[in-house]
Design a protein around this nucleic acid. Structure first.
Lengths: 168, 168
DNA sequence: TATTGTTATACTCTATAACTATA
DNA sequence: TATAGTTATAGAGTATAACAATA
């Protein structure tokens, strides 16, 4: 199965590649295509099955693994968006009773955000579905390929992280 | 280089992973992190250096490689967004004189969108910068790793494409 | 002075749906 | 009836910047 045939029947972002394009660019477009494909699937399932969004899910996922809670600024760093946006998403989740702000004694500017017990229950369900969606999407890919991909992405992540934060 | 140390100093989306999480999920989060990292860099450069956006750039990129132009519905399929959105982006680009709608004789419902010569010049500049940004971001990753990654992503793309389109 | 978090603003993208004009 | 494209709408996410309270 070659890419030409594949692209002929299933056009996607990667089809914008030109013959003269450099390998790095091809790599990037392929990465983008894979990611968009999965991401739009996840987004639409989160919306239709749980009436939520990826950023909201991400915020809850961050909290889920830190039972003691996180500060807004920590969330902001982890999710790589600005403070104001975290405030907005947190407001929505708090209104739905899924997270809770608590004032911290040592620094009266800050507050700690935690999942409520309702939030934990809700997240557990979503996370379980989420995992199934991913497994379904990736079903059929050999384990060895997955491991290779995981390793290779690890390299890329490290490289881009340093390239994009140190310079520029 | 281990992930723990890495994540300790550079928090990101992947840090939401839990020890019990399945490999597929880890793979997905790592993929998402890599993609977001690069994507947000590209988006912000497109904005600051060219006052444009990724979807606009993508649309022009699609047109660039098809000199005879494309129909709206083709663009819609390739960019994986609905018709109405293509209309909007095309309107903007047309207002700036970068693309041009032409009525097609054989089917009076359709129109063909092409890059204008200004559009071609503009795109050429952007594409060249874009390629440099990508190469810079990926500089330092061994060629062999890149090739492995490219191949592995090809597998993933194929799998997910079929998984996500055939079954729901 | 710097940081934490909020608020306000403006913009883009997106999906959805109703609509037209053609086929 | 189905398709191509437009229009209108509503919602989300984002960056930016100004601001108050606190460190």
């Amino acid at each position: 199965m070659n890419d030409l045939n594949f692209n002929a029947v299933t056009p996607d972002l990667e089809s914008r590649i030109r013959p003269e394009d450099h390998g790095d660019l091809r790599l990037w477009l392929r990465l983008l295509t894979c990611c968009n494909l999965l991401e739009s699937d996840i987004r639409s399932r989160l919306r239709t099955e749980y009436e939520t969004t990826l950023p909201r899910f991400d915020l809850m996922a961050q909290l889920q693994r830190v039972p003691e809670g996180m500060k807004m600024s920590e969330l902001s760093r982890h999710m790589m968006v600005t403070n104001g946006n975290i405030t907005g998403i947190t407001d929505q989740l708090e209104k739905e009773g899924l997270v809770q702000r608590t004032k911290v004694a040592t620094d009266r500017r800050s507050s700690i955000i935690k999942l409520t017990s309702k939030g934990k229950r809700t997240f557990a369900k979503m996370a379980s579905s989420h995992e199934q969606w991913i497994r379904h999407a990736m079903a059929g890919m050999p384990e060895k390929s997955k491991r290779n991909l995981f390793e290779a992405l690890g390299e890329l992540k490290l490289i881009t992280h340093t390239q994009l934060t140190t310079h520029s």
